[in-house]
Design a protein around this nucleic acid. Structure first.
Lengths: 177, 177
DNA sequence: CAGATATGTCAACATGACTGTCCCTTCTTC
DNA sequence: GAAGAAGGGACAGTCATGTTGACATATCTG
């Protein structure tokens, strides 16, 4: 049932080189579910590990990276919105933001429409650091995209979006475009 | 450039419903890289969150889950092999294995070919718990597979394998089949 | 036999999450 | 305008899980 990866089924040949065993028609069997779980675990781990050296050199951790990433992605977002994206408590985020503020990587300004809000933006130094960190993730992701090909990328997105519960998908989409 | 998800491009229609914006020919642009990063983050988080309630009811954490998962996947693997899969130190794993041993979820037996090794297996209770935990992951992954379709799953695997550095791919493959 | 390897253990420490509580400011509603 | 809700900050304590470093024991290999 398992097709050796050295002889991929022609029917599922993609745009670029496809080195993985294609999903079988019985792709909901336990083995193929476990394959997805494992690849997701190792793929995710591999991607984020790339930025660890840069973070360590700055004395920061992955929690700081996640905050920097989303502030770069959505400049001017509020503290509450960032809490929602990260799925952590305000106390946990508070420590991270205190660090980033103290290092002048992030700055906060009072919201114009709602003065209770603190809108988050990167300073030039913060933007420079985020650019370096992003370059590491990009290197990993671009290689994977390039090896797998355009059609594979669409499938990659589709399955991942399917993993997100329906009531959380709008938030993910809103981040983009 | 962005095709509304309500009207997917026919050229990339997959086996089943495809609700995501397909990757464009310029799929290495920053926006499409960031889309992958974000979907990987939210997809991974969503999948593993499903088992948290079961774990909490047992007084266990995600570290215990990962150990149970791999022992279930490769019964009789050695401590050193498990350390390699998890990418943690023996001290970190030691605490986890002590817990799992104390709760009679895992048992260790001396290796037959190499008596220095401690080969890990689940007890019946451990296997029952792992089955419950796996069912949660499976529920999430099977839904995502089903919504995205067989071809998307192949692409999902291909991109994730591409994220793993080449020298780590054999280990991932060895886990399967 | 000597050295390498597999594993276990103790101790100290760092990160990043959590709960709970109290506070201040600002917006919304009656 | 007063009352309550909401956004945010801060302090304290705890927990889960990772890290280094050091040392011990048993076993394998040359």
């Amino acid at each position: 049932m398992t097709v050796p990866s050295s002889r991929p089924a022609p029917s599922v040949a993609a745009t670029a080189g496809l080195r993985v065993t294609p999903a079988s028609p019985l792709f909901l069997r336990e083995d193929e579910i476990r394959r997805g779980i494992e690849l997701l675990y190792f793929g995710y781990s591999s991607m984020i590990r790339g930025a660890d050296a840069i973070l360590e050199a700055q004395g920061l951790g992955r929690a700081h990276h996640r905050a920097l990433y989303f502030i770069a992605r959505r400049p001017g977002l509020s503290v509450g919105e960032l809490i929602g994206l990260l799925g952590i408590t305000k106390q946990s985020l508070g420590r991270v933001l205190t660090d980033l503020n103290g290092r002048a990587l992030v700055e906060q300004q009072v919201g114009k429409v709602d003065r209770r809000q603190r809108l988050l933006n990167l300073t030039p130094a913060g933007a420079a650091l985020e650019t370096k960190l992003f370059a590491e993730l990009e290197r990993s992701m671009a290689r994977a995209y390039g090896e797998a090909g355009q059609h594979a990328v669409t499938g990659f997105w589709a399955v991942l979006m399917g993993l997100v519960p329906p009531d959380g998908r709008a938030q993910v989409e809103a981040l983009q475009g």
